[in-house]
Amino acid sequence: MAGSVDTEGFKEHHPAHHFKDADHEFFTVKNGMWLFMLQEILFFAPLFVAYFTFKFIYFEDFQYSAAKLDWKLGAVNTVILIVSSFTVVRAVVAAQRGNNEGLIENLIYTIICGFGFMIVKAIEYSSKIADGVLPGAWMNNAALVEAAPQAPLFYSLYFMMTGLHALHVAVGIGLFAWLLLKAKRRELGPKYYTPLEMTGLYWHFVDLVWIYLFPLLYLVG
């Protein structure tokens, strides 16, 4: 089967035996992907619940601690992720139209955006580490704790929430790299682009989480 090619010039794909046809497989996998993202919402939920709870109890402390975050870097990351969601959409459309060059191009842009996000995150984290602004028991900035005694709690939540999110971004970058390889082997075309569609949905979800994290942590505090 290695060399067989479909009518659009892409590698032939055979749906698993328990599906009626390729479309049945596509829409079932999509259904499953939405279910996966449903559980992801609930996976992030406890951190948001904890954040909302403590934010309103320790209102001033959280505002004061959040003011130490660089909102400009946060905004840059927001723009990066929005652009990457756009390039993902372009990649999917390219595959749907059989435009393999367009697909590869947009996958590369998406990966670049992903790395861009991680680099900005690294800059943010290292600046915090350099200032001794660390989560929980690691907090090592007496002036901050003096002014906002619950700063360790804020930073526990900040690092955990952005850390979990960054982990998801890293996984996404890996998935897009895998898709890039598939695209280079002409395995993603109009008749079969399921892995691309699903990874795309995942990536938009990651964007969604950041759309809420950014104003919550950086702007409102």
Binding site: E40, L42, F43, F44, F54, G136
Partner: peptide
Amino acid sequence: PVLGLTLALVALERVAGVGI
């Protein structure tokens, strides 16, 4: 998933002193 994250938070608090 809520349980998963919650248990992970307890483990993190045990191991890293980062906790809520």
